[in-house]
Write a protein that binds this DNA or RNA. Structure first.
Lengths: 227, 227
DNA sequence: CTCTGGCATGTTGTATACAAAATGCAACAG
DNA sequence: CTGTTGCATTTTGTATACAACATGCCAGAG
C-alpha cells in the first residue's frame, strides 16, 4: 500500500503554515469571522508574507477561510444553514462509504472495528468524552479506508474539518450519547453481514442525529448570545 | 437572490490566472501529466510568478494540479481507478441533490426543466452533440440549484470540473445516447411527482452508465496508445 | 564501457521592496 | 450636530531579487 520505504517527510513552508492555521481555526484560537492580518500573522508564524499567502489559498480551498479582494482573509463563520447543508452532504458521503465498504470489507477489518467498538464502550462507560470522540473518529475514518475510494476519503475529510470548525462537541446529553454508541454497534453488525443498504441508512440517520444536536446547540448559543 | 444591485466584478490576478489555466487544462491544451514551468507560464500569462503560484494553489485545491515540493506543479493524470472513484462520489452527490430537490421543487421549476428537456430532445434528434452536452449540463446544474444546498453544489461543481479534465465526451454511441435522453425524461417525471427515492436511484444509475462509458473509453485509449 | 562524483545550469522557494487599494480620522460645510 | 471630503496611515497585491534545491552533463576511476 505504501510508496517508498523511507520517505523523507518534507513539507514546504506554505503547507506547514496552513496546517498550523488549520489547528488554530479548529481549536477556535482564530475565531470565526476574524480577519487575518498578513504582516502580523507572518511574524507570529515566523515566515514571510509570500508563503503565508499561499497558505491562505490552501485554507480557502478547504473552505476554512474566505478571501475578499483587497480586503484580506477571514475565518469562515458558518451559519446554522451552512451546518445543515454540510451535514446533509456528509450523510451522502458516509452513506456511500458504507455501501462501498460492504463490498470490500475483510473479516480482519471487522475484528479491528469490533476492537474499536469495545474501546468506545469503555470510553462511554467511563464518561470519557475526549476518548469517545477520538475513537468515534477512528471508526469513521476506518470505514472510509475500507471503502477504498481516495476521492471519497478526501472529500469527506475536507468537509469534516470544515464542520469541526464549528466546535460542535457541546450538546451531547446522556440519552444521545447512549443512542450514538448503540448505533455504532448496529453499524458494525450490518457491515459484518454485508448489508450495504442497512448500513447506509444507519450512517445517514446517525449523521442526521448529530446534525440535529449541532443545530440545537447553535440555536441555543445564538439566543443566549454566547461567543 | 442577488446581493448588491451593481456589483463591480473585480477579480484578482491569481483568480484570473487560475481560471485561464483551468480552461487550458480542461480543453487539454495543458495535457495530463504536463509539468508547468513557472517562469515560462508567468510570461505567457503576463503575470509575475507570485500570483501564478497562488493560482497553482487554487488549482491544486480543485484537484486539477499536483504540487511536489521543490519540483513544481503538474497537471493531474487521472487513472481509470480515479475516474471510477470520482463517478462513485458524483453518484452519491447527485443522488442527494435529487432527494433534496423533491422537497423544494416548484411547479415553475418543473416547467423550466421540461423546456430544457425539449431542447435536449431537439439536440438529440438533430445529432447535435455539443448542444446536447450543453443542455445536459444545464439540467444537472438546475437540479442542483433546486436542491438549494450551496455546499453540495460547490462539491459537485469541483468534482465535475475534475472529471471533465478527462475529456470524456468521446464514447457516446447511439444506443447509449438514446438511453440517456430517455433517462432524463424519467428523472423529470419522478421529480414532478416528488418521488425522491426513485429520482435518486435514477440519478445514480444514470451516473453509473456514464461511468461505464468513460471507463470503456479509457481502456480503449490505453490499449490503443492514444495520446 | 559503466558507474560514480562533482559541477554548471535551470527551476523552485522565500523574502523583501514597491504599488495600489482600503481604512480611519479630522477638518470643514451645511 | 451631521454628513461629506480629503489626507495620512495601514493593509493588501504584485514584482523582483536572492537562496535553496534539482537536474543533466561531463570527467575520471574502475
Amino acid at each position: 500500500m505504501d510508496g517508498s520505504p523511507f520517505p523523507i517527510v518534507r513539507s514546504t513552508l506554505p503547507e506547514a503554515a496552513a496546517e498550523r492555521l488549520r489547528t488554530l481555526i479548529i481549536e477556535g484560537t482564530l475565531a470565526p469571522g476574524a480577519r487575518l492580518n498578513e504582516r502580523e500573522l507572518s511574524e507570529q508564524l515566523g515566515v514571510s508574507r509570500t508563503p503565508l499567502r499561499e497558505a491562505f489559498r490552501i485554507l480557502a480551498g478547504d473552505g476554512l477561510l474566505v478571501q475578499l479582494p483587497n480586503r484580506g482573509a477571514q475565518v469562515v463563520a458558518l451559519s446554522a444553514e451552512d451546518a445543515r447543508h454540510g451535514f446533509d452532504v456528509m450523510g451522502a458521503l458516509e452513506g456511500l462509504a458504507g455501501e462501498l465498504a460492504v463490498t470490500r470489507v475483510t473479516d480482519a477489518d471487522i475484528e479491528d472495528l469490533r476492537a474499536l467498538q469495545a474501546e468506545m464502550e469503555t470510553a462511554h462507560a467511563e464518561r470519557d468524552l475526549p476518548a469517545y470522540y477520538r475513537v468515534n473518529r477512528a471508526i469513521h475514518d476506518r470505514l472510509n479506508a475500507i471503502a477504498g475510494n481516495p476521492i471519497l476519503t478526501h472529500t469527506y475529510r475536507t468537509l469534516n474539518t470544515r464542520l469541526h470548525a464549528l466546535r460542535f462537541r457541546s450538546n451531547l446529553n446522556t440519552a444521545k450519547w447512549n443512542q450514538a454508541v448503540a448505533e455504532h454497534r448496529d453499524m458494525i453488525a450490518a457491515l459484518a453481514v454485508r448489508d450495504g443498504a442497512a448500513l447506509r441508512d444507519m450512517l445517514i440517520r446517525h449523521l442526521r442525529a448529530k446534525q440535529q444536536a449541532v443545530l440545537e446547540t447553535m440555536k441555543n448559543e445564538k439566543t443566549l448570545g454566547v461567543v
